[in-house]
């Protein structure tokens, strides 16, 4: 229950392309990227060899080898030769601001808006049911995901996605939960960007408290409204940031 989205992917290449099942190789890569993002595997750590990896994930050795080579190409792992050789998690592997910005700038305003609408629809459905079904233990768990104002941006990003997953867990709908996990994977790393802004963090903390309170007091309408506001806070920030790429070079932005 406390885990982050399965298959969370850094790649935005697949967003808004027709849905096809990801190949096994992509699936293996996704698992490893997710393990890195959630801190299960850390920089410098040695990865199992392809035989061990294949056995652990129940895939063929060929698939494991291809996945390792794909991870190497995308800079997630590095390979050292020789006696102390093997595959290691790369040093600069955690989502960086530069990479997140690059991802954001690949998207149009329309894509961000549409993704947000879908995310709001699913999250609000979860919140409404969660407000009907919550008990005291659920609400205590939910509140444990509200991050402290001074937590670092990667922790904030993870906490926000886990908070929403917990709302889905309280709703007790496997379908909605799976849809939410898929949407979070589609969102990619650019949700890291607003988490570096203390104003955004302060606004978001208030909304998170309001969501938890509405779910605690069994107010489905309020829970839906607050969850939508939570996603709008992120979207509005991202749209404002994304709009900057259209500013002329000599433009002095209003403050």
């Amino acid at each position: 229950m406390l885990l982050s989205p399965e298959g969370a992917s850094r790649s935005l290449a697949a967003v808004f392309t027709p849905i096809k099942s990801r190949g096994l190789v992509d699936e293996v890569c996704g698992r490893i990227e997710q393990a890195v993002e959630t801190g299960l595997l850390t920089s410098g750590q040695r990865l199992p060899n392809e035989t061990e990896l294949a056995a652990a994930l129940g895939v063929s050795a060929v698939t494991a080898r291809e996945a390792l080579s794909q991870l190497r190409a995308s800079g997630i792992i590095r390979t050292a030769r020789g006696r102390s050789g093997g595959s290691f998690i790369a040093d600069d592997v955690l989502p960086s601001r530069e990479r997140a910005l690059a991802q954001l700038h690949e998207l149009s305003r329309l894509q961000i808006r549409d993704l947000a609408l879908h995310y709001q629809a699913i999250a609000a459905a979860c919140a409404g049911v969660a407000a009907r079904r919550s008990d005291a233990a659920d609400v205590a768990t939910l509140r444990s995901f509200i991050p402290a104002a001074d937590d670092d941006p990667p922790s904030w990003r993870l906490a926000l996605s886990e908070f929403l997953l917990e709302v889905a867990a309280i709703a007790r709908s496997a379908r909605l939960a799976r849809e939410l996990i898929r949407l979070q994977a589609d969102l990619g790393t650019f949700t890291l960007l607003p988490c570096a802004d203390s104003g955004y963090r302060a606004r978001t903390r208030v909304i998170l408290e309001d969501v938890a309170a509405a779910i605690e007091c069994h107010r489905p309408g309020a829970a839906e409204t607050e969850v939508k506001a939570l996603i709008s806070a992120t979207t509005d920030w991202l749209l404002a940031e994304q709009a900057k790429r259209y500013w002329p070079d000599d433009f002095d932005p209003p403050h």
């Binding site: 698992r31 490893i32 393990a35 299960l40 750590q45 061990e52 056995a55 652990a56 994930l57 129940g58």
Partner: peptide, 12 residues
């Protein structure tokens, strides 16, 4: 018999 969460076994 799909293995579950076996990647975690490589984490210290």
């Amino acid at each position: 018999l799909e293995p579950v969460d076996a990647l975690a076994n490589f984490s210290p």
